[in-house]
């Protein structure tokens, strides 16, 4: 298929894609998002779906729609920093829960992280997300 998973609604996955682009800095404060039509063509999804994703992003105050001009990433940098932090915490939470479920204690988790982050500086080049 077109890079979407099978279980989550497509509009939701589009929201996640845009948020990732913002957090990564591919889209910066004040940048214009593709039009609904362009986005639809690019991801081969229905314009209604793109519309719904943009409405959700707007509700999250991550983007703003300016009448007749299009949809833009918010200029509110504090919000974007907050978004980045929020995402970080979510991912770490999931990671810790997974580790705890497998029976690792806090020290083991920390050591494991240190080991991974410490002795292989090239690790971060591996971008798992795209």
């Amino acid at each position: 298929m077109t890079g979407f998973n099978e279980t989550q609604p497509i509009y939701y996955q589009l929201v996640q894609k845009v948020i990732l682009q913002i957090v990564r800095g591919d889209l910066k404060a004040g940048d214009k998002l593709p039009s609904v039509r362009e986005m639809g063509g690019q991801f081969k999804v229905n314009p209604n779906t793109v519309q719904r994703a943009y409405a959700d992003l707007e509700r999250l105050t991550v983007v703003e729609t300016r009448r007749g001009l299009g949809t833009f990433v918010t200029e509110d940098r504090a919000r974007l920093t907050q978004l980045r932090e929020q995402l970080k915490h979510e991912k770490i939470d999931t990671f810790i829960k997974d580790m705890q479920q497998m029976g690792f204690n806090n020290q083991e988790i920390k050591d494991g992280l240190d080991e991974h982050l410490g002795d292989s500086p090239n690790k971060e080049d591996k971008n798992v997300n795209c």
């Binding site: 039509r37 991801f43 081969k44 999804v45 229905n46 314009p47 209604n48």
Partner: peptide
């Protein structure tokens, strides 16, 4: 098929 799907996504005015 891909071209047709793309054309539907970009040319229909819902």
């Amino acid at each position: 098929r891909e071209l047709i799907i793309k054309s539907l996504a970009s040319f229909i005015d819902l």
